[in-house]
Design a protein around this nucleic acid. Structure first.
Lengths: 340, 340
DNA sequence: CTGTTAGCGCGTTCAA
DNA sequence: TTGAACGCGCTAACAG
């Protein structure tokens, strides 16, 4: 690999001059500039970013820490982050936290020691205090999917309480009174908020929250299956199921279909997230849109703006969920819950 | 941030000694080692990996280039790669190639200039020649999902021809004679191989491949919908549809269900990849398993073994697909294709 | 076993 | 406008 030195020799100029044309921040005469440029591509020169980082104390790379790399949720987010950052000529270094406190902290250390200029974090297990302290350090951080008042300007998040409210209100408006709920893991903030919104809607409509008809899943399809099995085993009537995400809704619906139940005639469903797949099942899932692409993009823009001073990056912090009405929820009918 | 120098002063030893205890490859007396160690955590010292990379010409990071970061395919692969590499204390730098030649080449440059010790590539648009040349360079590369004879030892791949064969054979064994095929993009090698395996099975059973009943999709759900609409518009009888992946199969099935067709009674389906979601639709999709997790892991192991000389990493290059029989394929019945 | 001394490839003063 | 020289934080000979 050719170095800046090789280029300088071939071009007949000094090291410093070569460095100058690379970063074109200082004036260089057009003539020498051309000499350098041609020397560069004669040698197929590519700057060594490691050395650049060491000398400039800037790595042009941003660390991204998410819970997991797969699934319909983080994939799109990562995509947007990578695209936006790449367009700004920045690198993305990733790490997975697996919703575990020590792994999340480990990931942060990992990324910081790699000299990231900033960190984009979607973390769930570490507490607010840790993040606030981190925020005070030298490396800027942005939080996705989490709101901490003290550092609110560095948070990009969705109003999950409102989302939960909207989903449940939709069900209530159809006249349902007996409503089951499949929750996400209760240690996760978004799961808590969605549940809270759900309960808020119930209260507003004067229907009581029934603890026995609430199941805590893990946001994955299979736990939706388990949830449904459980709910059906509770000898209680319910005409609708509100699910904290689409994946669990899909699992739950699959179980019902398997049992020969008619959806939504016998049982209505609402999901959350608006992931692509459930649009291809029957019935098409009514859900709440989660603008995860946008949030990923905004986190990247935040970094571009605040860390790299990109004037084009406009950032938006708060996102508002929207109900997407499709076919899985309707009015309660009389022949619901036949199996009871 | 404390440097190695600060540590050496506090511990009363030389820079080299500090470096030695960090990399513990040279003998250091237990006593000085303890002095250094305690100095380190007194200062909260963290090595600057950038400087380490520059000095040692090793970055401990491996670049991963995939087509896209989302979707049920790359997510799991990335997860395994990250997990395996992280366990070996290596970093992962990612880039997306978007199945576009210039973006893929760009991604490679991008990762190389970042000083990656090795590259794991899942590329589709660049030609073999480019990869062979890359393979001769200084940075080791591994190819996932692609077989190039000249560099076969650096390829981790699935026998897609066999997979296509198995899927179609399953359909043929049920007695189907009129079979439609929804292909992936024909410029992609895996799509080509799967189609080839399909045709091989047909030939073996003495049924002819019908070009009119073959539709080229893009491996995404929506193109499965388009494919089905198209196939139904061709005024030809067919009793089964073999799909080059599960996503397109899901889209196609959704269209049929929408039209009120009974699956598999009226039309049988086989997919490919065995992604999680279609297990939660009705009918459960019969498909071919694609061990994408394993392949990601193997690519990471390859790097661990050949680049970092990890003796524990055992690598396997070739993977064999397996048929997963579920509920979407059955015998052809007489009332198929009623709509014709 | 430990210290000295060169670099690694580049950015950035400071003079000229 | 350009060049010389130093330093970023660390590793890797080479001595001792």
């Amino acid at each position: 690999m050719a170095t800046i030195y090789d280029v300088s020799v071939l071009a007949g100029v000094s090291l410093a001059t070569v460095s100058r044309v690379m970063n074109n921040n200082t004036k260089v005469s057009e003539k020498t500039k051309q000499k350098v440029l041609s020397a560069m591509d004669q040698l197929g020169y590519r700057p060594n970013t490691i050395a650049q980082s060491l000398a400039s104390n800037r790595s042009n790379s941003v660390g991204v820490l998410v819970s997991q790399l797969d699934g319909p949720y983080y994939g799109p987010m990562m995509t947007e982050i990578e695209t936006a950052l790449r367009a700004g000529n920045k690198h993305v270094i990733i790490a997975a936290g697996h919703s575990d406190e020590s792994q999340e902290k480990d990931g942060v250390e990992f990324l910081m020691s790699r000299g990231c200029d900033a960190l984009i974090l979607d973390v769930e297990a570490v507490d607010d205090e840790y993040l606030i302290k981190l925020h005070q350090g030298d490396t800027p951080i942005v939080l996705i999917n989490r709101y901490i008042e003290e550092i609110s300007d560095a948070c990009v998040y969705l109003d999950n309480d409102l989302g939960g409210y909207l989903a449940t209100k939709h069900i209530l408006s159809h006249g349902h009174k007996d409503i089951a709920y499949i929750s996400g893991p209760k240690f996760k903030l978004d799961a808590q908020d969605r549940l809270h919104g759900h309960q808020r809607a119930l209260t507003e409509f004067g229907v009581e929250f029934d603890e026995q008809l609430c199941f805590e899943g893990d946001f994955k399809e299979h736990s939706g299956c388990l949830a449904m099995e459980h709910l059906l085993s509770v000898k209680k009537t319910f005409t609708a199921v509100v699910c904290a995400n689409d994946q669990m809704a899909s699992g739950a619906i699959a179980v019902c279909l398997e049992k020969g139940m008619k959806i939504p005639q016998e049982l209505s469903f609402v999901g959350y997230d608006n992931i692509p797949f459930p649009q291809y099942i029957s019935p098409k899932l009514t859900t709440v849109n989660n603008p995860i692409h946008e949030m990923g993009k905004m986190a990247a823009f935040w970094v571009l703006k605040h860390v790299y001073n990109d004037p084009k990056a406009e950032v938006e912090n708060t996102f508002t969920p929207q109900l997407i009405v499709r076919d899985s929820a309707t009015k309660p009918s009389d022949n619901h819950n036949k199996q009871l």
